[in-house]
Amino acid sequence: MEPDSGRGRIGRGREGDTGLRGAARRLTGCVRAPGGKRTMSSITDNYPLSEKNPDRLTTPTGASWNDIDLQSVLDGTLSMSDLRIAPETLELQAQIAESAGRSQLAENLRRAAELVNVPEARILEVYQALRPGRSTPERLEQLAGELESQYQARRCARFLREAAQAYDS
């Protein structure tokens, strides 16, 4: 189930944290407090997004929350790839987790944001490579490089390199 190429991919083209964070802000309509720092409540006030701000949710294929209903499923205009989370949304959830003091969860969600546009077969390939005794450090470095160059998945690439280093010591 690869993303439906027939739709505009709003998830594409936004690379790196700055782009995602900006997009995440637009998603919630969240503005900075006068002091320049967003307060915890201003972020968590948007939670749950599915109740508070569903209209602003889109999929990586460009479908919006309101596009997805029983009729669109029956028409066949909707596929499983439309029922996916967008990197911007994951970034926003990462910020929510962070504001609740959950830095590791936030980091996981940011790695996830990078994987949104990585095809499932490739994800499974990376997972298999990380399992015990499957890969040389070079192989892990190669996968890290690919994730970085093809998908701008910098955090994931760093994570793979850290694994390679740990496996090798």
Binding site: L83, R84, I85, L90, N108, L109, R111, A112, A113, E114, L115, V116, V118, I123, L124, V126, Y127, L130, R131, P132, G133, C156, F159, L160, E162, A163, A166, Y167
Partner: peptide, 21 residues
């Protein structure tokens, strides 16, 4: 290892699930 994973492979899997919501 007998469980055929490492902390890194499990963590990556967790991110994979999260990437699909």
């Amino acid at each position: 290892h007998d469980g055929d994973d490492t902390p890194w492979s499990k963590a990556f899997l967790a991110s994979a699930y999260a990437s699909r919501g």
